[in-house]
Design a binder for these strands. Structure first.
Lengths: 249, 249
DNA sequence: CGTACGTTTGATCTTTCTCAATAATGGTGG
DNA sequence: CCACCATTATTGAGAAAGATCAAACGTACG
C-alpha cells in the first residue's frame, strides 16, 4: 500500500511506536471509514460541552487543546502533530471537557466514533494501542503540570521547544532538530502559562545565549545537548522506548 | 456482602460512579487477589523509573503523585482519596514516569498487575470502567494545567480546595463541604505551584474574606456558592454525571 | 499601498519569591 | 502530666520574575 494512497498510515506509524500491531490490525485501521476534510486555522475538531460523535485524525497541519479560565484567560493544554488521533480523550466520555482546534491549516480524517470503538473492542491489539496512546498523553499532561508549576520562563520555554523537536523528529517531521514552529508567540504564551511579551523576551534570551537560532518561525538548536540541559528535558515521559512486557489489555 | 468485610467496595463504588458494572463484574472485583498493607506517610506505591508490577488501591488515607524538576523543585501532579486505584496510569506502560507516595498513614490493597489486566481484558464492563477512570484522571490533569498556568494564587488555591471538597463529598468522606485537609502547607504549595509562604498568606486571605474557616487542618466553606465563584470552579471536568451513551469499549 | 496581525521594545507595576526569624503544634520519653 | 524536639505555621522586609500598558516596527496579503 503506497503511503500517499493511505491517509491513515501516519496514525498506524504513531500507534506502532508504542504498541505492536499485527498485519490484520493495520489492515483494519486502513479499512476504517473516514471523511477527508481540509480545514483552516481555528477550526474546531471538538468543542467543549459537546458530545463527541467522531474521532479526528490529524493528517497534516497542527492542532491544540485548550481550556478557558473564568477571567477569559486561555490555557493550551496540549499540542498535536500529524499522525495523532485527537479525540481519544473525549471519545469514551459523554461530554467534551475542553476544545480541540486547528493551529494551522491542515487535513483531517474524520472517523465515526462507533467505528473506532468497535475496532478497539474487537481487536485487542488496537484496544491496547489506543490505551497506551491515552496513557502517554496523560504522561505529557503531567509533565506540563511540572513544567508550568515549577520551572522558570527560560527553562519552561526551552522544555516545550525540546518536546516539540523530539515529537516531530519521531514522526519524521523535523529537519535535524530544526523545525517550523507552527504557532504565534501569543499561542506559545498560552501553552506555557506566560505572557506574550515575556515569551518574546525569553525567546530573545535563548537566542542571545546561542541556544536557538530563529528565522521567522523556524527554530534550530545549534547545541542540542545544552538545549536539553537548559530545558531540564528528559524524554522518559514520552515513553518512546518500545514496550517489552505486559501487553495484555 | 458487608462493606467492612469487603475492602474493595470503595473501589467498586468509585468505578460505578462513571461506568456501570454488572453484578458479575462487581463479584469479579471482590474476588481479586490482594494483600493488605498498612503504610506510613511517605511510603511509595510506585517509584519513578521502576517497572510497575502491581496495582495499589487506596483503602484509607491519602496519596499523591509527584514529579521532580532538575533544580530539585517538586510538583505534586495529582491527589488521591480512598477508593481510588492509583496505578492505572502506570500499569500498562513499561516504566513509571513519576512516583506515587502516601500523604498520610493509610491502608493499601495491593493487587498483582496481571490480575487487573486479565480482568480488564476479559470483562468489558471492567475494561470500560478502567478506561473511563483513566480518562477522568487525564481530564483532571488538564484542569490542573489550566489552574496552575492561568489562575492567580487566590483562585488557584480556592480551586484546589473546591476540587478536593467535591471529590471527598462524592466518595462520602466530607462533612457538609468541610473536611480535614490531609497535607501540610508545603505540600499544598507543591500541588499548586506556589511557595509555602505564599500559600500561607493566601490561605489567610481566603480566611479573612470569610471564604474558608480553618481549625488546624480542617477547612469549611461558609458560603459554598461564593467559594466556587472565587475558585473559578466548574466541576464538569470531574465527569461526575452518569454516562448515558457510548459504552462500547 | 494600506490594513491587520504579529513581533519587538521600553517603562513601570504587581505578584510572588526569598531569606530570616518567631510562634505554634504534635509527638516522644520520662 | 510535663519538658523537649522536630515539624509546621506565621510574619516581616526586601528582591525578583513576570505582568501590564503602550507604542513602534515588520510582514503578509488582499
Amino acid at each position: 500500500m503506497h503511503p500517499n494512497r493511505d491517509p491513515l498510515h501516519l496514525l498506524i506509524r504513531k500507534l506502532e511506536l508504542q504498541s505492536p500491531l499485527s498485519e490484520d490490525d493495520r489492515a483494519a485501521i486502513r479499512d476504517l471509514p473516514y471523511t477527508l476534510k481540509s480545514v483552516e486555522p481555528g477550526t474546531y475538531a471538538i468543542r467543549e460541552g459537546d458530545p463527541p460523535t467522531q474521532c479526528a485524525v490529524l493528517l497534516s497541519g497542527f492542532a491544540y487543546r485548550q481550556k478557558l479560565a473564568g477571567d477569559g484567560g486561555r490555557q493550551i493544554v496540549a499540542l498535536h502533530i500529524p499522525g495523532e488521533a485527537m479525540d481519544f480523550q473525549n471519545l469514551f466520555l459523554d461530554v467534551a471537557d475542553h476544545s480541540v482546534q486547528m493551529l494551522t491549516r491542515g487535513e483531517l480524517a474524520v472517523i465515526p466514533r462507533h467505528a473506532i470503538q468497535e475496532l478497539a473492542r474487537s481487536r485487542s491489539g488496537i484496544g491496547h494501542a489506543v490505551l497506551v496512546s491515552l496513557l502517554v498523553e496523560a504522561s505529557i499532561f503531567r509533565e506540563w503540570v511540572l513544567n508550568i508549576g515549577r520551572r522558570d520562563a527560560r527553562t519552561r520555554l526551552a522544555h516545550l521547544l525540546c518536546e516539540f523537536a523530539i515529537r516531530l523528529e519521531t514522526q519524521g517531521l523535523a529537519d535535524d532538530y530544526g523545525y517550523q514552529l507552527p504557532m504565534t508567540q501569543e499561542q506559545l504564551a498560552d501553552a506555557v502559562g506566560l505572557t506574550p511579551v515575556h515569551v518574546n523576551r525569553t525567546l530573545k534570551l535563548l537566542e542571545s545565549e546561542g541556544l536557538i537560532v530563529r528565522d521567522k518561525r523556524h527554530v534550530r538548536f545549534p547545541d542540542w545537548r545544552r538545549m536539553r540541559e537548559i530545558g531540564d528535558f528528559n524524554q522518559r515521559y514520552l515513553h518512546l522506548e518500545p514496550q517489552q512486557a505486559g501487553r495484555v489489555l
